[in-house]
Design a protein around this nucleic acid. Sequence first.
DNA 1: CGCTTTATGTTCGGGAGAGTACATAGCAGT
DNA 2: ACTGCTATGTACTCTCCCGAACATAAAGCG
Lengths: 272, 272
Amino acid sequence: MSTTASNLVPAPQNLLLAALPAAEWERAGRNFKSIFMPLGDVLYEPARLANHIFFPTTSVLAVSCVLADGWADALTLIGREGFAGVEDFLGRGSAICRAVVLSEGWGYLIRRELLVQACNQDGPMRSVLLRYAQSYLTQVGQTISCNRHHTIAQQLCRWLLMFLDRQASNVLPLTHEHIAELMGVRRESVTEATRKLQFAGCIRRQRGHIAVIDRTGLEARSCECYRVTKRETDRLLEMSRSAKFASTQAALDRVRSGPSEPSTRHAASSFA
Amino acid sequence: MSTTASNLVPAPQNLLLAALPAAEWERAGRNFKSIFMPLGDVLYEPARLANHIFFPTTSVLAVSCVLADGWADALTLIGREGFAGVEDFLGRGSAICRAVVLSEGWGYLIRRELLVQACNQDGPMRSVLLRYAQSYLTQVGQTISCNRHHTIAQQLCRWLLMFLDRQASNVLPLTHEHIAELMGVRRESVTEATRKLQFAGCIRRQRGHIAVIDRTGLEARSCECYRVTKRETDRLLEMSRSAKFASTQAALDRVRSGPSEPSTRHAASSFA
DNA sequence: CGCTTTATGTTCGGGAGAGTACATAGCAGT
DNA sequence: ACTGCTATGTACTCTCCCGAACATAAAGCG
C-alpha cells in the first residue's frame, strides 16, 4: 500500500510507466519530469520535430491529422493508458499530426533521446512502448473505417466514451465547437447529435461541458469501433502488466519495497 | 555493378533491406526466404497472429480494416518500400487488419521471432524497421482525413498513384469491384470516377485492368494526401539510405565488394 | 456458335451531412 | 442592469454518395 521512504520518485500513475518493473522505474524514472498541461496547449505540430515525449496521468490529449484547408480530424485520444509522441519515438517527428490538450492536467515529460536510449537495451521499457505503439496504430486504423461508414451520432458516442475512459470525472470539458473540430465535422452536426443524446437521457448539457449520466446508453448507441479498440487496448495493456509481474527483477523489488501500484484510483476511468 | 561471387544471397530488391549495410544483410539475410505471392492471397487476418513478416519486392499488398458488416477499408498499400506485418512486429498481431495481395509477385519472408531478434541490438535493422513503422503510421493517419473530406474521384487518383509507385508496370491489375472493396465504397461510384478519368485521358481501361497513361493528370486530380504521404515516405526512406552510407561498416564493405544496389531498376516505380 | 460468367455502364430515389444564415440563451465584465 | 461575447439551437438548400434495379459488353467455354 505505502511506498518506501527511500523511493523518492512516486510510483507513476501513467499506466505504461506503472507497468514497468520497479527497478526499471527507479533507474529511468529520474529522467521524467512531472508537469502540468493547460487546456489547449499544443504538444507538437506538423513538420515540427518534438524533442519531448509526454506520458499523461490526469490530462487527456487529442492527436489530429491536419489538412491544408484547415480541417483537422482526430486519430485517437491519449490519456494515462498511453503516451504522446509515438511518431517521434518511432522515427523523427510527424509530418501531419498535431497533439493538443483536451482536458488539462498532469503528466510526465521526458526528452526524446533519453527515452530512445532507455529503449536501446532489450527490456521491459521497449516492449511496453512498442506495444502501445501498436495499440495506437489499431486505434488510428479503426478510425478510418469509422469515419467512412458510421453516422456522426455513432462516432460522437465513440469519442465521448473514449474520453470518459481516459478521465476521472464524468463531466467532459467540451463545447460543441471543440467536438466538431475533433471529429472534422460541422458544429451544427454536433449540436444535433448531442440533442438526440440529451433527449435519450444519456447526457446532460452544461454550457461548455457535457455530463455523461448513462454510459451504457452511449455504448449502445456507439458503433462497434469503440468496443473493438477498447478490447484491443485493454489486451495490450494487460500484456504489459503481466509482463511486469513475470519479471524476476520485479519480483525481487516487490519483496524489498512492496507493491508500487498507483495509490489513488480513478473511479470513473475504465482503464483503472 | 556486379556482386562478388562470395555473396551467395543476392542484394535485396526490397528498399528497406537494401538500405541495410552489406554486413548486416550478409548476417541476417539467410533468415529471409524468397517466395512468390499469388493474387488474392491473405497474409494475415483480424485476430490471427501472423508468424511471418513479409518484405515485398515485386508484389504489392493492401492492408485493410475489416468491419463486422463486411466493409473493408484500405489503410495503405505496401510494396518494395516497406513490409507487411507492422502490427505483428510492434506487438502481437492485429485485431482488425487484413493484408491481401493486390498485385502478385515476389518478396522475402522471415519468421517473426527471427526479425524481432535481429532488432534486439541497437543497429541499422531496428532503425530502418521503426522508421518504416512511422511511415506506415503517417499513411494510415492521412487516410483518416482523406476518407472524410475528399471526394471518391480524388481518393481514386490517390490509390492509383500509390499503386503505381509500388509497381513496375503502368497497367494496374484492378477491376472496379476490387477498387471499391479497397476504398470501402460502392462499385458504381468507382465506375463513375474511372469514366471521368477516362474522358480526361488519364487512364485507358481494359477489362480487369487500368492502364495509366497520364500520371501527371492523376496527380493534378488527386487530393493533397498523395503528395503529403509520398513526401514523408520518401523522406524516411532517404534517411535509411543515407544511414547506410554513413555507416563505417557499410563503407568498409563497399571497398571490399562494390556497391550492393539492386541491379534491376523499375522504370515506372517512383520509389526507384 | 450460343451460352454463361464476369465486368462495366446507367438510372432513380433517398439520406446524411456540408454550407449558409440567423435566432436565442447563458455568462462575464463594467 | 446593460452590454457584449460565446455557446447553443433552428432552418433551408445543395451535393455527394448509398442502395437497388437493370442494361450492356467482353471474355471463357461447351
